[in-house]
Design a protein around this nucleic acid. Sequence first.
DNA 1: CTGTCTCACTTGTCATATACTTGTATCACA
DNA 2: TGTGATACAAGTATATGACAAGTGAGACAG
Lengths: 246, 246
Amino acid sequence: MRQVRYLAVAAELRAQIEAGEVSAGGVLPSEAELSRAYGVSRITVRKALEHLKAEGLVDSRQGFGWFASVRPLRQGLGRLGTIEEQLSESGMEPGRKVVDFRFVPAPDWVARLLGPAERIEVLQVRRVNLADGTPFARVTVWLPAALGSSFSRDDVERHTFYELLDVPLGGATQTIGAAAASARDAADLGVPEGSPVLRCERVTRAADGSAVLVAEHVFPAHRTEFVVELASPEPSMAPSGLRLVE
Amino acid sequence: MRQVRYLAVAAELRAQIEAGEVSAGGVLPSEAELSRAYGVSRITVRKALEHLKAEGLVDSRQGFGWFASVRPLRQGLGRLGTIEEQLSESGMEPGRKVVDFRFVPAPDWVARLLGPAERIEVLQVRRVNLADGTPFARVTVWLPAALGSSFSRDDVERHTFYELLDVPLGGATQTIGAAAASARDAADLGVPEGSPVLRCERVTRAADGSAVLVAEHVFPAHRTEFVVELASPEPSMAPSGLRLVE
DNA sequence: CTGTCTCACTTGTCATATACTTGTATCACA
DNA sequence: TGTGATACAAGTATATGACAAGTGAGACAG
């Protein structure tokens, strides 16, 4: 029987990563080192690593190295598509409606998140997402006026902000909480005032770490929920990422 | 495992700042001094500092120096401790109280999650977590009777289930949603009935992928929120992991 | 006391160099 | 087709040095 060496190497690496010997985000030894360690050529090591990359377990950057993926997705679990994909798959018709497009002075909490320099003016876009004509989300985006000055209402209606922005993006921080629907929430989403809603606040940062965009998503609780895959169980029973607010 | 030096320097600086060795608003040593102190080049010190700046922990002014931010923009999720740690750090006394410990037939939705074989009987443990005596979470755990038969009420009061279980765990799926407080939620958490709560449902799987344990966490919305760090922004504006429910 | 100048020190930025990494291509062998 | 050896291109981390530009404090003339 012919032995396939790179699969054996891949299996060993996978075992080490899943055993936590390489922490999430940690850097693996270089291909050359692995090659020496396992007594195989660099080609074989690469094939093994690329195999793991296809599984979503590791990733690489040229000139830097290989590192364990921050959020590995297991093979058995299909990727969760975007909401729009889910809608069309279940036969519903997605739609969106821009209900507000204005330059306004930044609300206090938005100004705090964007940083002091951006205090002055922001482009505020409010949009309602529809499924078969009934609203299931309201999204509000605040963008420094300097960045949004060239956008038209048509632009934001047809494209995502990530497409429109010409800035290399570096990451985001997302906060998920529950709240009672305000009067405006109730009107926009067609739910009773005071009924529970999921509120998600996201700060998107540029590659250099500066905040670029603040977004608030509000969902009626009875129609939506978040799903998070945890690769390895937390030591505590408390869900990861939970935080007490003031 | 390879190390990236500027990340190591950043970690040490972060530790010092958070330990209060640099008071809020206080000035850090100059880049040249840090460079000497850590035995690295100024470039590396700068990269570390800029890393912390992206986290909102420090800031700089040309000609003046680096100083700790008065109000950190955000806490990196990587170092977000368990709720218990947060409580003791903020001077509150954590506590827990087991309010229910029973073997019962599995509720339908739990049985579905655990798989058909486990339909028969489960150990149901209900616990209220306290901060300074007032409840901030209620956790209910369902465990197949076969796995939980050896546990005593004292065991679950003193240890986490992850410690008690002798099974190698493989991962978990966590669902976060909002809901209105039921009568029991209201009683357990001390909030008005119908007020919004965060509801988190977790299915923990063994290494072989079979479901081992189902847990439900309920938090009053006004005290808790989830923070998720996204390494790279999603192509869609919709928050990742969101899913429509029936 | 008040303005102004100077000087030491700081961050911001650029250029250059080295060592090391992944990405890719080529040729060879079983 | 899997594996190995080699070479080179491209990208990253780090070190070193230099200079521009901003800050603050003290010296000094009025």
